[in-house]
């Protein structure tokens, strides 16, 4: 059956291409042949469903969800926003997962050998499910910048990784959020993989003082847009397979 909720074709011009020599690791990991364009079937418009009850009460609070002997070091920060679709509607029940370095720029990960220390009270990951209006919120500490092996002197701006699962598997998206005002943003080889400078700016979260908690936490706002569904009011004879 032609799915009634098939997605609008993805605008690849908003995204980085696979092959981006300025980000060297992409050279051997990007397909050389064209992607096959596939009209949506049930396999693309459906996707995993998650229940709010699957998450623990602290899963979205990175200040407390790995606290052992105290709270993590760093700038207490709220990151919040809405998950919308391309039609401007909030996406309810989307799974939002985040991960990040600690305040010194070190990840709690076997393969991270950066000189900055692990924070014993910081895991660096969280997850939330959006409410009926598509809203989500995390509390965390602001991550630090860190060096990575690309050029000899390559540094990542402070960033939080975001993973989004909407209602359909074809909406699946991973991206990174940056912080307004960070001078490393303009120097970053990863952000520069996105060809359109205006599209890059949409990954920069803005300081949201109105959402800050006075004497407690700063706040940044980051809205995310997932693919929207196409209107199927008029459908004529279908062509091809």
């Amino acid at each position: 059956m032609v799915p009634q909720n098939e997605f609008i074709q993805r605008d690849r011009g908003q995204h980085p291409p696979g092959f981006t020599p300025e980000y060297k690791t992409s050279v051997l990991r990007s397909p050389r042949l064209s992607l096959w364009s596939l009209q949506n079937s049930l396999s693309e418009v459906t996707g995993p469903v998650y229940g709010h009850e699957e998450l623990g009460p602290l899963d979205h609070d990175l200040i407390l969800n790995y606290a052992k002997s105290g709270e993590p070091i760093g700038e207490r920060t709220i990151v919040h926003g809405r998950v919308l679709d391309e039609n401007g509607r909030g996406v309810p029940n989307a799974l939002v997962e985040v991960w990040q370095a600690n305040a010194g720029g070190r990840y709690r990960h076997k393969n991270d050998t950066y000189i900055a220390p692990i924070d014993p009270n910081f895991g660096g990951c969280g997850r939330a499910i959006t409410d009926q209006d598509g809203r989500y919120a995390f509390r965390t500490i602001k991550p630090g910048a860190y060096p990575f092996r690309n050029y000899v002197n390559s540094w990542r701006p402070a960033h939080i990784h975001f993973s989004l699962s909407g209602s359909g598997f074809a909406q699946r998206l991973i991206t990174q959020m940056y912080f307004e005002g960070d001078p490393l943003i303009a120097k970053d080889s990863i952000l520069a993989t996105i060809p359109d400078p205006a599209a890059r700016l949409r990954l920069v979260a803005l300081l949201d003082l109105n959402a800050a908690v006075p004497l407690d936490s700063l706040a940044y706002r980051f809205d995310i847009v997932l693919r929207g569904t196409r209107s199927t009011v008029f459908e004529n004879k279908l062509h091809g397979n």
Partner: peptide, 28 residues
């Protein structure tokens, strides 16, 4: 219409967020 949020690489530490046990710890 809004434009889809641009993708970025999941990076080398994707395990922390999505499969933390492989990163070396359990949290959820």
């Amino acid at each position: 219409y809004l434009s889809e949020t641009p993708s970025q690489t999941a990076g080398p530490y994707v395990h922390i967020g999505l499969i933390p046990h492989q990163a070396g710890f359990d949290i959820f």
